[in-house]
Design a protein around this nucleic acid. Structure first.
Lengths: 113, 113
DNA sequence: TCCATGTTTCCATTATCGTGGAAATATTTG
DNA sequence: CAAATATTTCCACGATAATGGAAACATGGA
């Protein structure tokens, strides 16, 4: 993962409303939720929800699929995996800041790409 | 970790210059680097470096210590640990997006607060 | 086809961010 | 104290982000 992509993903999550949306989608699992359901759950105007979900989508953290007249959004777990890998690889010296539970692994390093 | 703190940390890292600074400090280890050295390494004007490092500091991702007439900045590994823990706890369904190397752990869950 | 429903785009407004030169503020050394 | 060096604060500029109402754009059903 290049730094630009990591920055884009971080920026997408670095906003309270968007982080809340993403958490909700993670909670919802692979099925995801349609736009209205997210808006209802978080008490957001449709335009605001649409704006934020579009940003998450642009950063590839959220996928969209049409289903009837609904649009379902779902968390992209693989992208989150890559972001976490980037952070552990580049922002932790020798895994020094991996969560304690993961700290004493044989080798948590990953292909640098 | 509360959502506000996570957002603040993410926002601090969600900027190319700042992420580069943080990476450099991680690389430098606990000793850290003085402001001028960081600026030189990244080719940044002093004012710009100071601005960004202050943001990282406000987000508690970077610590500062005076040493003679230099000010040394160093990465706060514990804070990074907490951020990673927040992300894995709240943005990965059952650890579904933990980096592969860490995925099959007995229990990567951590105290929620 | 017409209507209801779901979602996005358009728009204007306000607020905040990133940048870097210049001046101000430490701190050490002579 | 004065000079040199390190860093920050001040300032102004342009750029981008967040918000939400209203209008436009699908889509499915009667």
């Amino acid at each position: 993962m290049e730094i630009n992509i990591a920055v884009a993903a971080l920026a997408a999550l670095a906003q309270e409303t968007r982080l809340a949306i993403f958490r909700r989608l993670v909670e919802a699992g692979p099925e995801g939720l349609n736009a209205g359901a997210i808006a209802d759950a978080l008490g957001l105007p449709a335009a605001t929800l649409s704006f934020h979900v579009a940003q998450l989508n642009r950063a590839s953290l959220v996928a969209a699929r049409q289903e009837g007249r609904f649009i379902f959004y779902s968390a992209n777990f693989a992208a989150m995996d890559e972001l976490l890998a980037y952070l552990t690889d580049n922002c932790c010296q020798g895994g020094a800041c991996l969560p304690k539970a993961a700290r004493n692994l044989p080798s948590a390093r990953r292909k640098s790409k």
